[in-house]
Nucleic acid binder design. Structure first.
Lengths: 333, 333
DNA sequence: TTGTAAGCGTTATCAC
DNA sequence: GTGATAACGCTTACAA
């Protein structure tokens, strides 16, 4: 391993001088600079980030905590975060939390032990003590918390749109999948949907889910059609749940969208290729990750951040699991 | 930040003693140990990994480099790696290479700058100088190289199976998508398929692709049916390519699998839900990641590794994009 | 403009 | 059994 000392020796200067040219700080004679740069070149030297980090008590590392990268929604968030971070020379320590409080705690500990300068997290436990204690910036992603900045989609509006669309397209006995109770964006979606359902007086039922796991979604889908066999419209809490519902509906011989309409949430890759392709409320996942990273960088750099909560717009993506909108019928709101 | 000094002071001992109980090394009196442990508890102390890493010249960090986590195949690899690593207390610095040599180089540099103890990579450039220079273990994942250990699926066998199956099920004018030329597993698949095609004397054509990107796959799919409109069977280089081919076939009004059979490779999530669901050659992605991590850990711990190359089995997953096998017709090999 | 040296939080060597 | 202390590779006062 070649160190700053080697470079100093090779260039015939002190380590302080090498450090100065490395960090472009303080005075250093043009000729000296060139000598040092030549030495760096020749020795193929790269500074040891660990030593730097130790002295400065901060690294160029960001902790990224996601529930499960295997769920197609999260890679896009991750990618958005990574792309923005790498533009500014930050790197990610990455972990899956599996919606486990213990794993989250462990990862948060790792992050601080490694002098991470910030944490971006799609936590399931935003109120957790571990977060509260942190004295580095935290940005919640696809989550909401009163005590930390956050980037998320407009769930309430998404829920409203889903309900409006499914009603406009003719469903009259709607079932709403309610996502995990402790996750705000999920509840917002739910409430937005219920709000419209109540206002328009359309009959609806509710099925509660506790996690985002596919397995649970499959069980709930069965439960749904067992409990409400005559439902003619399902507003799912996310696309994975919608897929489970779609599957179960088809298995029961129901025609989608003729007998049951289904609307998902997220717009994960490939759902446009299912049969029927899934209509959904699109969240701009990549952009959300990107924005979260942007916010984090501002926080790290100590800039005053006007907007601590960034809400992203959602939109209805019409595909085959909903019926065509009747042309002459206008439902306003 | 509470340091080992604080703990020492609090417990009325020296930092050396604290370090001893921390690392369970050397002699320390039972009573002293208890005092120290109490102090650690009370101060909620966790050792600074950066300082440790600096002194020992090695961290608990592993570099993981994947082409693009947004491609549904890679999250599973990542998850397998992560799960195994976390069992042994290792953490991941993660990066997407986008099949870019420069990005790979940058990430490798980061890894070494942060004292990573190993690198697991699905590189597109296994022969790259940056890898050669490394003096920490490298494990290639889903890639093959003569100078580094690797974990990959049996591509040749996969290609053979794909060809056999598509022939047995009746295709007689097969088109084979040849994956990126410099990636061994992709070439193995191709060669395996061609081998069987030639042996059985079935007519076939080849379309070359350069990357794994979906966009290119879509172009090649168009090219495929333009060049060989009467092909009745496509062996794709991976599932994303197969999806593109499926889409294009359907767009052209071809019936799948009646007029064209399609076989993918990988078995990524959700392709079983497409219409028709995609038949494919399954790679055990999660297991591959897990095994790669396992191999890496052995390498790190300096254990002699009998098996430097781990080849995983593949299997045909029959779904709707291939026809049923004629019951009375036996094709052997 | 450059060099010396202290210090970042650990671990490990060597006395005691 | 335990404590001083050098060392890991870097940055930054401070001195020259």
């Amino acid at each position: 391993m070649v160190t700053i000392k080697d470079v100093a020796k090779h260039a015939g200067v002190s380590v302080a001088t090498v450090s100065r040219v490395l960090n472009e700080i303080g005075y250093v004679h043009e000729d000296t600079r060139r000598m040092v740069e030549k030495a760096i070149q020749e020795l193929d030297y790269t500074p040891n980030e660990v030593a730097r980090s130790l002295y400065k008590r901060k690294s160029r590392l960001i902790g990224l905590l996601l529930p499960d990268i295997t769920n197609p929604y999260f890679p896009q968030l991750a990618r958005g975060v990574e792309d923005r971070m790498q533009e500014s020379g930050f790197r990610l320590i990455f972990g899956n939390s599996d919606e486990s409080e213990q794993k989250e705690r462990d990862y948060i500990q790792t992050f601080v032990q490694n002098n991470a300068v910030g944490i971006i997290s799609s936590t399931n436990f935003p109120g957790m003590e571990s977060y509260r204690r942190l004295n580095i910036p935290v940005v919640f992603l696809d989550r909401i918390s009163s005590d930390r900045p956050a980037v998320y989609a407009d769930g309430r509006e998404g829920g409203r749109i889903a309900a409006q669309q499914i009603i406009e397209r003719g469903s009259r006995r709607v079932t709403v999948l309610q996502g995990p109770a402790h996750i705000r964006p999920a509840q917002d979606r739910f409430q937005g949907a219920v709000e419209v359902l109540q206002d328009t007086g359309v009959a609806y039922e509710v099925i509660r889910t506790a996690s985002f796991a596919l397995k649970e979604a499959e069980e709930k889908a069965k439960e749904l059609f067992a409990a409400f066999p005559d439902t003619d419209g399902v507003i799912a809490s996310n696309d994975m749940a919608a897929i489970a519902v779609l599957h179960e509906a088809l298995r029961l011989g129901k025609k989608v969208p003729e007998e049951v309409q289904i609307i998902g949430f997220d717009d994960i890759p490939l759902i446009g290729l299912l049969s029927p392709p899934l209509s959904t409320i699109r969240q701009p996942a990549y952009d959300m990750g990107y924005k979260a990273a942007e916010l984090m960088i501002r926080l790290i750099e100590g800039q005053t951040v006007e907007l601590r909560n960034i809400q992203m717009p959602v939109e209805f993506v019409e595909r085959g699991s909903t019926r065509k909108k009747p042309e002459n019928e206008y439902v306003d709101r």
